[in-house]
Design a binder for these strands. Structure first.
Lengths: 216, 216, 216, 216
DNA sequence: GATGAATGAGGATTCATTCAT
DNA sequence: AATGAATGAATCCTCATTCAT
């Protein structure tokens, strides 16, 4: 297709892109190696020059998506300024906006009890949820008791992921696209307002750096 | 409902049970007619005596699960008592607790942009979200403006569904089962407390009938 | 193909026949399920209604061939009459003549160190060779010491098998077919004469029931 | 033979070694170019710098093995001394012992009716068996009539080959390795003793140069 | 209503081979 | 001489479905 025969590991990235899309849209079982290869302009057999097999490709896709997300979430609590929560929310939303299929990938895997997530989630969800990673006690803690904080964190996770995982349905059902720039900005603002309520007597005044695109 | 439980529809129900489990666990493409038949103690061919085919069986499973959920949600706003929100939350949680695979079924379908959900969601999500079905304006409305109410509703939907759809993963990762009676009761109490915060300056006092099992 | 749709497990036997032929001719890896199905007048998928897979079919073919051979060899020493050895040789040769592909099957398996043979050979070769099954001590023993008897037995095994396994080559190279009735009769007579030499001072006089076709 | 062992033909020889092993272990169809290349520490494509293709490599392996065997067998009858048979047996056994996979290669090919062997066997087996190559009439002939001599020769071929082709199985089943130095020496002694019986009323006294390692 | 058997289509993967580098 | 990448064909096997019994 291209005049210069694709500069080496470019193909690998192209495969990952296509696979990410199909795995997110149809799940592991619904995406076929034939379709993935076809959309890459490759023969099926060529995929095996770059990945060990379907499972290997799948895990490579997950790795490429999950690793940056993990790094982002681990880097978050370092921001110890006022407006921390607003910035965190914007940061996460922007990250997911730039990889809008990632939540679907993770959700697929989570629902099937896939081994991959279980393997890495122990080092991800557990600290996140148990309060070790994000020290919300000062900001969030007032209305919540210590043992409720994991539920707060999961609720945030579910809300944010839900916005992305349900987007294909909502796009059809509502009169706007949740993943359009406007939809994302609106949702980010909503989450920031919500955060003020959840973390106690907020009043709805935006704190500081909540611009939905500052972080990408 | 029937006085003598016909063996005929008994088989049908057994198939639906098994299919619901497998479709929820593995999605439409990951569940095979062979596995479904096998777990029913039937030959593959027998499934076709009860359903039109895989798609038909799938939609029957969805129908059986979605219809009562819709009815429940449409019946909710009729409860116009104080403590309405607590009771609504308990009611929904109890319903889902009795059909814990239903959120996974719906989520699978929502993520793949399946036609089925789109078809029925127009009559479900739309009113729910647009404020026609649940008149939250009085209870919920104070901190929220009219056009934010859909986002509030969806946030609730995502949080509640998330608790069930993520359960297979969290069961492995956390140190408790989110779908155990204790896990569900805890989560229900959490949601009720959260509702008080979201719907304005609640103080955490349980309003009235929040028992997680009253409705089942 | 047939007007009456093949009486049940007739198909299974037909598959075994075809598979035996192809496995013997080409080995496990050289025989394809497609070819087997094709020669049966079946689609590939149909084979899996009767056998677990290629390996299962292969082992069924081996079982069907090896079991009667084992039974024959275990029944041999019961013949405790004069002319025992001649009759034994004729008996084995006739058995193999009726299943001329069996030695090739076994030889293929033996050369690849296949698990199947190793599994069953422990109960077959070992006693045969260690003198437990066939008590040749009286007949054969004179020129041979006790610890040489296993080698005698194996030599017989190799000679007899060789006649059948090398037949496809020899048929092309020699001017007669080793597996034709005449070829088999001639070979049987040769083996009987040879036996008299090996078991000591025979003179070549045929002892008794050496007719190559009496046993089949 | 070459003074500086060219790295070029070194690679070629290494490929031949590996291919011989895999072809012998698994047959032509069971050995893959990938495995051969892998065990050589080469990429698949590199094999094609040295051989025309799989078939070419296969025939090169056969050639390298069969040619010396043919030469050995043609050189045998020149030894016209007493004890000729003992020496011949030791010579053949020693040759095969130094290339223990050769009989398996030949047997694979013989059983599948491969063209290669048929092509060369006409000039090999035929004379061998028809008495042209090895003039056994004087030594062997006494108890055997002229037209039985081919069968005698083939019996020897089958016994000797069998010892090597069945070794992978027997190694697992018996309590010793037929191809170990002791196993080979024992088998050679056995064959020599057997020869004395077959060629008429021998008494077991070793004639002359039967040392199993003199020839290698 | 239940099912064994059959099947065309499609599943993932491996095959031997080629070619530009 | 070596190879990474590509590939069409073929591998074994599973899929959902049908149909006669």
């Amino acid at each position: 297709m291209q005049s210069p025969p694709t500069p080496a590991s470019d193909t690998r990235e192209r495969i990952l892109d296509v696979a990410e899309e199909l795995f997110a849209d149809r799940g592991f079982n619904g995406a076929s190696m034939r379709d993935i290869a076809g959309r890459c302009g490759l023969g099926q057999a060529s995929l095996y020059n770059h990945f060990e097999g379907k499972q290997g490709l799948y895990e490579a896709v997950l790795d490429r998506g999950v690793t940056p997300l993990l790094e982002l979430m681990q880097s978050l609590p370092n921001r110890d300024q006022p407006g921390q929560v607003d910035a965190m929310i914007a940061s996460i939303m922007n990250h997911l906006a730039s990889r809008p299929r990632l939540p679907r990938l993770i959700q697929h895997e989570a629902m099937t009890g896939g081994d991959y997530l279980i393997r890495i989630a122990r080092s991800w969800i557990h600290p996140l949820v148990e309060g070790g990673v994000i020290d919300l006690k000062r900001d969030v803690g007032r209305p919540w008791q210590e043992d409720e904080l994991p539920l707060v964190m999961l609720a945030w996770l579910y809300m944010m992921f839900g916005h992305f995982t349900m987007a294909p349905l909502m796009r059809e059902v509502l009169d706007h696209d949740p993943l359009s720039p406007e939809g994302l900005a609106r949702q980010t603002r909503f989450f920031q307002k919500l955060a003020r309520l959840i973390t106690a007597g907020g009043d709805g005044t935006p704190a500081s750096t909540g611009d939905p695109h500052e972080d990408q």
